Amino acid sequence: MHEVKAPAKEEGSPVPDKKEEQTLHSQTEKPSDEERTPEPRSESAPNFHDFQYFNVLAAFAATFSVILLVIVAVLIYFVVTMSSERVKLGGLSVENQRLIAEKRILENKTEEMIRQRDSLNWTLGVMMKFTTFPMEKFCPQKKCQPCQTGWIQFQEKCYYFYSESSWKTWNDSREYCKQENSDLIVTETVEEQEFVSENIKYYYSNFHGFWLGLRQDSDKNWLWVDGRNDTLGFWIQEPFGPVGSYALMIPGRPTNASWDKAEGEMWNKFICEQEILLKSF
């Protein structure tokens, strides 16, 4: 047999070392654990990590449900509470309005009682001025009126226009008025002057009229019977009969020029004035 000869070594090619050959031989014998192909897992067999994931998810869902239920319960509580408070506030509002209405009623009743008190005090004061109060003149058929029968009311005064045939001097006229718990008229306003002018009528002559409660003192000042100075001065400007120290109002003359300065002994009609018995406050 021919002996197989090993191929001749080429020049320049390295000769492998024995250690390298052993290493290569060991590497080709079996693969390492890292190079082994993993065996496929069965799909039906759950992994531990899957169980852990589902448990966490279930716990989160349960916790979220509890939190949601708590939030809903809190919202329901607040809604019910607010509704209850609204009902209470509505009830308080109605009660407050009722109390306010009752307060107004009481205030009105109090004011009415005060007015009645003041009116009664006024009436009592007028009655006390009479020595003997003429009940039949002020209260015919037991129903009282502001003025005596035959007197005329204007604002808060009563007026008596004397119309009998027996005329009187200025002093006698005033005495007659005092017997009726009144006095000769004191004219205070233009409106009162107009009222008097409308209620006096012509009689006998152009020089006769109605005595007023106005006369001249020693200092030539014109004073009313209540002590006040005259500020109206509705005198007749042209010469008109004998000049005296007492005021006489002539019917038919202009309202602002109807007073005559007459002598007190002249006989004339007159006007009495007194406060009303019943006064509203």
Rank of each mutant, 00 (worst) to 15 (best):
E3N: 15
V4M: 13
A6R: 03
G12A: 05
P14Q: 10
K19H: 08
S26I: 13
Q27W: 15
K30N: 09
P31S: 04
S44V: 15
A45H: 08
P46F: 02
F60Y: 05
T63N: 13
T63I: 09
V66C: 09
L69D: 04
V70H: 14
A73I: 00
I76R: 13
V80G: 01
R86F: 03
L89C: 12
V94P: 01
R98L: 01
K103C: 04
M113C: 09
R115I: 15
L124Y: 15
M127R: 10
K129T: 05
F130S: 08
F133Q: 15
P134L: 11
M135Y: 10
T149N: 11
Q153E: 05
S163M: 07
S166M: 00
W170C: 00
W170Q: 02
Y176K: 00
K178W: 15
I185C: 03
V186E: 05
E188T: 08
T189L: 10
E192V: 11
F195G: 03
I200A: 00
Y204Q: 04
Y204P: 01
Y204G: 02
F207Y: 14
H208G: 02
L214W: 06
Q216V: 10
D217P: 08
K220I: 15
N221M: 06
W222A: 04
V225W: 01
V225F: 07
D226W: 15
T231D: 12
W235L: 01
E238H: 13
P242H: 14
A247R: 02
L248G: 02
M249H: 02
M249Q: 04
I250G: 01
R253L: 05
P254K: 01
N256R: 11
S258T: 12
E263Q: 04
G264T: 15
E273F: 14
I276Q: 04
K279T: 12
F281Q: 09
